[in-house]
Write a protein that binds this DNA or RNA. Structure first.
Lengths: 133, 133
DNA sequence: CTTGCATCTGTAGTCGCTACAGATGGTAGG
DNA sequence: CCTACCATCTGTAGCGACTACAGATGCAAG
């Protein structure tokens, strides 16, 4: 009998919004620890829920899994970890800003192309011609 | 003897800024046609250069390779293709705008986190705490 | 003759999942 | 008691778009 203070993987999935397959994947690659089992079934306690929530939040900010690993260690370790955490966040922020700039450029060009195409002249598609140069 | 009007893959790579391995990859998956060979060596003519340039430009706008395939067909076909091309560009634009919004949100949160961390209080890292919730 | 260069083929790795196939066990309904 | 369904299990393969080898080949220059 599993203690009522632990939950099966399906409920962890519901609580965190994280796909079951993804949870098992995280376990496989060592992002989540191998959980206690009752029979064949994984059971998670509140620490497990907290850990996966942490991972999800970090992933939503775009941190790669390797960085998430480090962030988890820092969060556990406490103490001197603030500097390192800030560095990772800054680098991630720079990354995000760079990607946004890329998307800005794409959006501008795509907008122009769509417009050019809309103002269609006889000869051919301005959009396709622009891609053909 | 290869005619001087054709170029080897290395020069195609230099001309288009596309990695040699990527060119061969495009050939393998049918984005680029199997080129003429002199001996073992691929040779490309100006049509080949134009085609790969088209692909690169489309990729820079974020079009997935499957869409690029279609765009290539449309560009070849000419004629009635403008509508379809515009639809693809519009859908790609919507995609880019959605992704940009995601990045905006991430940047905002990351910025806050970095700042919170900078204003470091004694107890612990505000950044890591925010991730831990 | 050796060194270096460009090219070749084929395969496997990257990242972060996602999607199966096929097994297992428990509960609920007929 | 049998069947159906449900959640879970393991293991493997696929996605997209490359990238990175390893190991072979052939040619030209020093």
């Amino acid at each position: 009998m599993a203690p009522s203070s632990t939950i099966p993987i399906g409920e962890l999935s519901r609580l965190t919004g994280c796909n079951i397959e993804t949870i098992r994947y995280y376990e496989r690659i060592g992002i989540l620890p191998v959980p206690v089992r009752y029979g064949r079934f994984r059971r998670y306690d509140s620490a497990g829920v907290r850990r996966l929530s942490f991972v999800r939040r970090a992933r939503e900010l775009g941190f790669p899994l390797d960085t998430v690993r480090t962030l988890l260690l820092l969060a556990e370790g406490g103490g001197q970890s603030c500097d390192q955490a800030r560095q990772m966040a800054e680098s991630q922020l720079a990354d995000v800003i760079a990607k946004r700039a890329d998307l800005d450029r794409m959006a501008a060009v795509l907008g122009d192309l769509v417009e050019a195409c809309g103002a269609g002249d006889a000869g051919g598609c301005a959009l396709l011609e622009a891609l053909s140069d």
